[in-house]
Design a protein around this nucleic acid. Structure first.
Lengths: 151, 151
DNA sequence: ACTGAAAAAAACAGTGC
DNA sequence: GCACTGTTTTTTTCAGT
């Protein structure tokens, strides 16, 4: 992981479908070493994979909700059971175990507020062990940036 | 946007570097229409781009912190100034304007707690108009999943 | 809109510096 | 570790159904 590797990652983070030729030109290298470096980062796990960025509105998931959750118990079993319940809810994109006032922070994608109300009532509130939850609707996204590789 | 389009997106979300041949086989189509559909979704903005998923630990950004922020004022100007200040901080990966007790939710990536302390002191606390902030360290990520395309 | 095949471009592998 | 060159694979285009 030297500067060239980080340069390559920085380019791939903004456009992973760029051709090897164009990529190597941008980082100031010929294509072979560029390709070798990418391969090495893929195999060592630095590169975890490649994904497409989908416009949430286009697939009817325009609303994002951040939910903070407290559990009744903090036993391993309760924690595990809660995690399993969340895994079954496709709208829950992300679940983070956090320090602080709450136990979990959830990122949820729904089509609208009615859809969210339904999700809350039919799925989240039915999870055993959930003591309290607080929802924050995302009104606007101010920033969305890849990992800073050149600090 | 029919079922086939969603099928294609679902595959690309898990692996965007799959070959057209393999992709078309999985969605039960030959490669030409598959390619046409991808192209159409790229041009219509359904597909926003392609990115690499980088292992944060490998680039020395192992710690994630979720910060909730309240501003002094909610004027357009204050809001805009705060957004501009955040744009200049590379560690701030995401900034969401939200409803609820707080004004903003920030996702921050740092190498460790000392790095975060420095960021807080030297950058965040220096932003004018920031009234209050509450940090939650991410202890573990329980779930991380792409958009549900087949609900 | 899909199929199948041909043309263009890129990825990949090997060689020498 | 890098540049160059050749082979293979993939992407892209196009005529036909």
């Amino acid at each position: 992981m030297d500067k060239l590797d980080r340069d390559i990652l920085a380019v791939l983070q903004t456009d992973a479908r760029i051709s090897l030729q164009e990529l190597s030109k941008r980082v100031g290298l010929s294509s072979s070493p560029c390709w070798t470096r990418i391969r090495r980062m893929e195999e060592s796990g630095v590169i975890e994979g490649y994904t497409v960025r989908v416009n949430p509105q286009a697939v009817n998931l325009a609303e994002t909700v951040i939910v903070q959750v407290t559990l009744d118990s903090h036993s391993d079993e309760a924690l595990f059971a809660f995690g399993r319940a969340l895994a079954d809810i496709p709208e829950v994109l992300e679940a983070l175990l956090v320090s602080g006032d709450y136990d979990y922070i959830l990122r949820i994608a729904v089509s609208d507020t009615r859809d969210y109300e339904r999700l809350l009532r039919e799925r989240l509130y039915k999870i055993p062990g959930l003591r309290h939850s607080k929802s924050s609707f995302v009104l606007r996204s101010l920033k969305q940036s890849p990992l800073p590789l050149h600090r």
